[in-house]
């Protein structure tokens, strides 16, 4: 018997246990399938392959030769690992705190405190790097810090009567942090701005009338109310910074002498310059582990439990 269910969720259903299964569970899997297929092909399979690959010593001959934990043992004796680990830590931490979260928050707080029109102009300017192709953006930074007198910074230095500097040799880490930060801040800025604008105007009005200063409003009202967005951006950007290396590749290629070689770039170099696919896969596996671990730490740090407290309403 065909029955129209008024809730409309199941559409036409056939009465009987067998048909209920088809209309219920099977249909939900059917609707999920396009996404599931994409995730399987482009995420699950590569992850599984990478992990399997990590237990081989595959090189340019592409032979699946399983060597057990050898790659991981090699890592413990690899003299570059401590250097790469420290670089990754410095790069991720400084870009994240100074730019991707810090600068993003600052821009959002400032541009939502001034008139809307000027705020939009400022925020649009910060979006420009996103519209620029990575290679062009990378070359732009190379030109800014060009060691000859034609670089932008050296031009400015010349105006002050100072000699040209070889920036890429003296401050390579600073340059890659700046390059990644200036582009990375725009994502946090977008999310924080949207979150701040979603806070009901009356909270700010109440605080102003109650005599709070701008700093007190930011500290006691705005920041606590956008806590979840800050958590999200911090976690997301940590993962994306850990995995990203394209600007470093273009600007310094990890140099000079491994001074900007971060974990993801080292993985890339190992796999695609030295053609040690097995060792590269093992390095990747560790990186994924670090990412997952840091996401859990963030959840704990921001007190997920406190946010899902039960209501205690009683009728009086």
């Amino acid at each position: 018997m065909l029955v129209w269910s008024p809730a409309g969720r199941r559409g036409f259903i056939l009465r009987g246990d067998k048909m209920k299964f088809f209309s219920g569970k099977l249909k939900s899997w059917l609707f999920l399938s396009p996404m599931l297929i994409l995730v399987t092909i482009f995420f699950a399979i590569p992850v599984v392959l990478t992990v399997i690959l990590a237990f081989t010593d595959m090189d340019y001959r592409f032979i699946w030769n399983f060597v057990g934990l050898m790659n991981f043992r090699d890592m413990s004796t690899d003299f570059l690992i401590p250097k790469v680990l420290l670089n990754t830590l410095i790069y991720t931490f400084s870009t994240l705190t100074l730019f991707n979260v810090g600068m993003a928050l600052l821009i959002s707080l400032l541009t939502t405190s001034i008139s809307d029109r000027i705020g939009v102009i400022f925020r649009s300017l910060w979006m420009l790097p996103r519209l620029t192709p990575s290679v062009v953006y990378g070359l732009l930074w190379l030109w800014i810090f060009d060691p000859t007198k034609y670089g932008l910074m050296n031009n400015l230095f010349a105006l002050l009567g100072l000699p040209p500097q070889d920036w890429l040799h003296t401050h390579p880490m600073m340059i890659i942090v700046f390059a990644n930060g200036f582009i990375g801040a725009s994502m946090g800025m977008l999310i924080f701005t949207a979150a701040i604008k979603a806070i009901p105007e009356d909270y700010f009005r109440a605080a102003l009338i109650d005599g709070a200063s701008w700093f007190m409003i930011v500290r006691k009202i705005t920041l606590p109310l956008i806590k979840w967005q800050i958590l999200f951006v911090t976690a997301y950007q940590t993962l994306s910074l850990l995995a990203s290396f394209e600007y470093i590749l273009i600007i310094t290629d990890g140099g000079p002498v491994y001074r900007t070689e971060v974990w993801a770039l080292y993985t890339y170099h190992t796999a695609f310059s030295s053609f040690r696919f097995g060792y590269g896969a093992a390095l990747s596996t560790i990186l994924v582990g670090i990412g997952v671990l840091s996401a859990f730490i963030y959840l704990k740090l921001f007190g997920f439990q406190a946010l899902v407290q039960k209501p205690r309403i009683e009728v009086d």
Partner: peptide, 13 residues
């Protein structure tokens, strides 16, 4: 001055 708002504007956190 003090003000009482329609939706009370009590800080939720």
């Amino acid at each position: 001055i003090s003000m009482v708002f329609q939706n009370y504007a009590l800080y939720p956190h």
